Simulated assay, not measured.
Amino acid sequence: MNLGLTVGYWQKSVEDLTETVQAAERLGYDSVFTAEAYGSDALTPLAWYGARTSKIKLGTAVTQISARTPTATAMHALTLDGLSGGRLILGVGVSGPQVVEGWYGQPFGRPLARTREYVDVMRQVWSREQPVTNDGPHYPLPCRSGTGLGKSLKSIAHPVRSRIPVYLGAEGPKNVALAAEIADGWIPFFLDPSMVESVYGDALADRHPDFDIVAPVTTVVTDDLDMALQIAKMPLTLYMGGMGAREQNFHLDLIGRLGYAEEAHRVQELFLAGRREEAVRAVPDELADATSLLGPIERIKDRLTLWRDSPITTLLIAGVRDEPTLRALADVIRG
């Protein structure tokens, strides 16, 4: 199982985590991943960290496909991959209707079909086998409206790699199946390692042998397990309660598939009512513990068995910033 680090997106103010990323590289971490929601973007920090490192892989978990056209994302990717010496892992995802329609001003419909077209266009850009075209309805190239002067083009730049790895951030079984079909890896969310097969086994059945399952896991190393559980509940509360509309919240649906549908709806009700502390307390301890690595380092070492016995191939440590803890985790995970 590979070991990586996820630093997420900025929380309110600027977060330059260069020292953390450099420490992870020194300790042999395989990758560092960034993210974006509706604030800081995922690609700029990777360029910053990539310029200050030499070996660690640079991943996005994830860039939102509605934020950029597929050719724009392909340009970002080939540029960053080239400057970093072929270190990019491009994770992409559809986000949800609240962000796509409220932030990017685009309709959310047909996310699977949009993703399929998006990935195909990017791979055409990188391969440079012929001018890029797309007959699909979502990203037609050349454009079918306007002046009629649009011309199919081939990238002027020659990518360092003609096939940059593309991973899909996916939660629903159909989207996970799409990842197994067209992508090089899958980035799940709030994953219980003991339930990967029961929840996603069918969706992952046709994945290729080198398919990478990259699982971010909230990690809190402390002797105070109760405090660790409270910390782990905070992102669960935010995503069940606030990262999606009341009527459609993919994260809420995911927690339901893990067996906590009633509890998830209660958390959402409390969160949307402004009762945030109650919402955190309403997250079941068992759910927070199952989707995280919490407590003293020996307890984490014991619980790693569940992750090693699952189909997960890369573990992304989330929430750790200091080098001593990164070192301790590296020792137990590799041990």
Rank of each mutant, 00 (worst) to 15 (best):
T147H: 03
S155A: 15
T63G: 12
T325V: 13
Q124A: 12
L80H: 02
G82A: 13
R334Y: 06
S162G: 13
D309S: 08
T18P: 06
V166K: 05
T6K: 06
K174A: 05
A318F: 06
E277A: 14
V176L: 04
Q22M: 06
L270Y: 02
T6Y: 05
P165H: 00
I255P: 10
S155P: 10
T53I: 04
L293D: 05
R327Y: 02
Q124H: 10
G256N: 04
L153W: 04
T79Q: 12
A282T: 04
P193K: 07
E269M: 11
K301E: 11
L315P: 01
G244V: 01
A232D: 09
Q268V: 06
V217K: 14
E101R: 05
R110E: 14
L306M: 05
G150M: 02
T18H: 08
V32L: 06
G28F: 09
V94R: 12
T218I: 07
G86E: 10
T53Q: 08
T147E: 07
A328V: 11
A228R: 11
L204R: 05
M234D: 07
V99M: 07
L294Y: 04
S194E: 15
L46S: 11
A215K: 03
L225T: 05
N175T: 15
P296M: 09
M75A: 15
G148E: 08
R275I: 07
Q130K: 15
D30F: 14
E25P: 01
